[in-house]
C-alpha cells in the first residue's frame, strides 16, 4: 500500500496572520526590541549618573573650580576643600596593590595551569575563587585584628631597617597606613586577577606549549617564551579588572588606611582615598557645601576610574592588535 506525499490539490492558503511560518518573526522583533532597550539603558544610565553627580556637586564646582583637584586642605568647618590627597591616595593604593598582587596572582595562575599536580589544580582554584566572595568589611576586620598587628610588629620595622634609606620606608609606624591599605587591597584583588589569568592561560592552545618544548625549552622557558606572550592581552585584561576593583574598593580601605588628608612620601603614614572619604563623611555632611564637595569627589572618582579603564582598554587593544614586529 503506497501513500502519496503530493496532495491532489494545492492546500488552501492560510488566512492572513494565521500562518505557522509567519509567527516566529514577531517574537524575534519583540526580543530584539527588548534587548535594544536594555542595551540603550546602559549609556542612558551613565549619562544620568554623570548629570546627577554634576548637579549635586555644582555648588563646589562653582566655588573651587578645577583647583579642587589640586587643593590639599580638607576642612569642613572652614569650608575649605581640596581633593589632591584623596586622588593621590586612591591612585597610589591601587597602584601599590597591583604591584603586590600582579606577580603573586600570575605566579599562582601559572603554577596552577602548568606545574601543579593535576589533582590539586581544581581544588586550589576553587578555594581562591571563594576568597572573592568574602565581603570587604570582613577583610577590613581581619586587617585590623590580624594584618595590622603583624605589620606593625614585624613587617614595617623590618622594612624600615632594610630599606629605610628610601623615603618610602621612613618615619613613625602607626599601623593604619597607605601600605596596610595597599596590602589588604592586594589580597582582595588577587582572586580576581588569579582566576581570570588562569582562564586565559587555560585557553592557550597546547600546541603552543608543545612547539616551545619541541625546540628544547624547559617548562618554564615554554611559559615565558610561548604561553605568556600568547596570553598577554588576556592577562592585561585580568590586571585591569583588578585595578578597577582596587580603585573603587571602599570599606576595607577605610578601615586600614588611617583616613588622614595628607600626601606623605612614607608608606607607613596614613592616607585617604576618594571612596573612603565619601563613605565616612556623607552621612554627617552638615552643610550644603560639604555635601557638594563630597559629590564633587564622587564625580572625580568616576572620571578617574573611567579614564584609567579606558586607557587600559586602549592598551589591551594595541597589544592585541600589534602582534609581532618587535625587534630585539
Amino acid at each position: 500500500m503506497a501513500t502519496t506525499i503530493l496532495p491532489d490539490a494545492p492546500a488552501p492558503a492560510p488566512a492572513e496572520g494565521t500562518s505557522t511560518l509567519a509567527g516566529s518573526r514577531r517574537g524575534d522583533r519583540l526580543f530584539k526590541g527588548v534587548l535594544t532597550v536594555a542595551a540603550l539603558a546602559v549609556p542612558v544610565l551613565m549619562a544620568f549618573l554623570v548629570y546627577e553627580l554634576y548637579v549635586g556637586s555644582r555648588l563646589a564646582i562653582e566655588r573651587y573650580g578645577l583647583g579642587f583637584v589640586a587643593g590639599t586642605t580638607w576642612d569642613p568647618v572652614a569650608e575649605e576643600f581640596g581633593a589632591a590627597p584623596l586622588i593621590f591616595g586612591t591612585l597610589l593604593s591601587s597602584l601599590l596593590a597591583l604591584v603586590i598582587a600582579v606577580p603573586l596572582s600570575l605566579g599562582v595562575a601559572i603554577y596552577l595551569t602548568e606545574f601543579a599536580p593535576r589533582a590539586v589544580r581544581q581544588p586550589i582554584a576553587f578555594i581562591i575563587e571563594l576568597l572573592a566572595a568574602i565581603p570587604s568589611v570582613v577583610y577590613g576586620l581581619w586587617g585590623i585584628f590580624v594584618l595590622i598587628p603583624l605589620l606593625k610588629a614585624h613587617v614595617f620595622p623590618f622594612l624600615r631597617d632594610t630599606l629605610g634609606f628610601l623615603p618610602f620606608f621612613q618615619g613613625p609606624i602607626y599601623g593604619p597606613s597607605m601600605l596596610a591599605a595597599s596590602i589588604i587591597l592586594a589580597i582582595m584583588i588577587m582572586p580576581f586577577i588569579m582566576s581570570v589569568a588562569r582562564e586565559v592561560l587555560l585557553a592557550v592552545p597546547g600546541s603552543q606549549r608543545e612547539a616551545a618544548l619541541a625546540l628544547g625549552a624547559t617548562r618554564w622557558e615554554a611559559v615565558v617564551s610561548a604561553i605568556l606572550p600568547y596570553a598577554r592581552s588576556g592577562i592585561l585584561g585580568a590586571i585591569i579588572l583588578g585595578l578597577g576593583r582596587a580603585l573603587g574598593e571602599t570599606m576595607a580601605v577605610t578601615m586600614l588606611i588611617g583616613n588622614r588628608h595628607e600626601i606623605a612620601a612614607s608608606l607607613f603614614a596614613p592616607g585617604y582615598t576618594m571612596a573612603a572619604v565619601i563613605a565616612n563623611e556623607f552621612s554627617e555632611a552638615a552643610t550644603d557645601i560639604h555635601f557638594a564637595a563630597l559629590t564633587y569627589v564622587a564625580l572625580v572618582l568616576f572620571l578617574v576610574t573611567v579614564t584609567v579603564n579606558a586607557a587600559a582598554r586602549l592598551l589591551i587593544w594595541r597589544v592585541g592588535a600589534g602582534g609581532g614586529g618587535k625587534r630585539s
Partner: peptide
Amino acid sequence: TPFPTMSI
C-alpha cells in the same frame, strides 16, 4: 604552530 606574537 608559529608563535603569533613574534615576528618571522
